[in-house]
Amino acid sequence: MKKIVKVLQAIFGLIIIGLLTWGGYKLLLAVALLFKSVDPTLGAGMLAASATVLVSVVSVLFSKKQEHKVDIENQLRVKKIPIYENIIEFIFLITFAEKLGKAQPTEQEMIAFFADTTRDLVIWGSKDIVKAFGDFKDKLGTLAVCGDTAGMLATVEDFLFAIRKDLGHKHTKIKRGDILRLYINDVDAYFPRLNKACQQDIA
C-alpha cells in the first residue's frame, strides 16, 4: 500500500512539474508576442521598466535572505557562548585547581562534563566544532594514557582555536602556544616535543 502511495505521489509530482513548465513556457511566449506587437520605442521602455522591477524584487529577496541568515547566526551565537564559557572554565579548573586550593574534578564530574557538553554541542554546535570536540576527547584520552603532556597541551589549544574560529575570530597571525602561554608560564619548554605539523601556524 505504501509503495502505491509513493508511486502516485511521484506521478502527481511529475504532472504538477509538467503543468508548471508548460505554464511558464506559455507565459514567456505571450510576453514575447506582446513586446513584438508594440511599437519598438514603447517596447524598449516596457522592457527597461520590467528589468528594473525584476532587479528590485531580486535585491529585496536577497537582502531578506541575508538578514534571515544573520539572524539565525546571532541566535546560535547566543546559545553557543555559554557552552564555550563552561568548557573553558572546566579546562581552567583542571589547570589551576591546585594553585587555587580547589579539588581536581572527580571521575564522575568529568563524565558529567563531557556528557552535558556533548548534548549541548549536538544541538547548537556547528559541524566543525562538533568534529573538534570529538577529536579533543579522543586525543586527550589517548595522550593522557601515554603521558604525553606536550601533545595534551596542543590538543587543548587546538580545541580553543576551534572555539574562537566558530565565534568569528581570525587566526592568521596566531601560532602554536600563543593561547597556552596566556595561562601556562613554561609552555615553551614543551614545544620541542611537538611534531613538525603541530609547530605550524594555525590558519
Rank of each mutant, 00 (worst) to 15 (best):
K2Q: 15
V5N: 04
V5A: 14
K6W: 13
L8V: 15
Q9A: 15
Q9C: 12
A10E: 13
F12W: 07
F12G: 10
G13T: 02
G13N: 11
I15Y: 04
I17M: 14
G18W: 08
L20K: 03
L20H: 05
T21R: 01
T21V: 06
G24E: 06
L27G: 09
L29K: 13
L33P: 01
L33F: 07
L34K: 03
S37K: 01
D39L: 05
D39S: 12
P40T: 02
A44D: 14
G45R: 02
L47K: 02
L47R: 12
A49V: 13
S50G: 02
A51H: 04
A51Q: 11
V53H: 07
L54M: 07
V55A: 09
S56I: 04
S56P: 01
S56V: 09
V58F: 02
V60E: 00
L61T: 03
S63Q: 02
Q66S: 05
Q66A: 02
I72Y: 04
I72S: 03
N74F: 06
L76E: 08
R77P: 04
V78I: 15
K80T: 02
K80M: 09
K80Q: 10
K80E: 02
I81M: 08
I81H: 03
P82H: 12
P82F: 06
P82L: 12
P82W: 09
I83A: 09
E85H: 12
F90P: 00
I91L: 14
L93G: 03
T95C: 13
T95A: 11
F96G: 06
K99S: 14
K99E: 15
A103N: 12
Q104I: 11
P105G: 10
E107Y: 06
E109K: 00
E109W: 01
I111H: 06
A112W: 10
F113M: 09
F113A: 05
F113I: 01
F114T: 11
A115G: 05
A115P: 14
D116P: 14
T117E: 11
T118M: 08
T118P: 15
R119G: 10
D120W: 01
L121I: 04
I123L: 11
G125Q: 08
I129S: 04
K131Q: 15
F133S: 05
D135F: 03
F136Q: 08
K137R: 13
K137S: 11
D138E: 07
D138T: 08
A144I: 03
C146H: 10
G147T: 03
G151E: 10
G151L: 07
M152Q: 05
T155S: 07
L160D: 01
L160T: 14
L160V: 12
L160A: 10
I163C: 11
R164S: 09
D166R: 03
R176P: 09
G177E: 12
D178L: 03
D178T: 07
L180R: 04
L180M: 05
L180C: 03
L182Q: 14
Y183K: 03
Y183M: 07
V187G: 04
V187E: 14
Y190K: 00
F191V: 02
P192Q: 01
P192Y: 00
A197R: 01
A203D: 13
A203I: 15
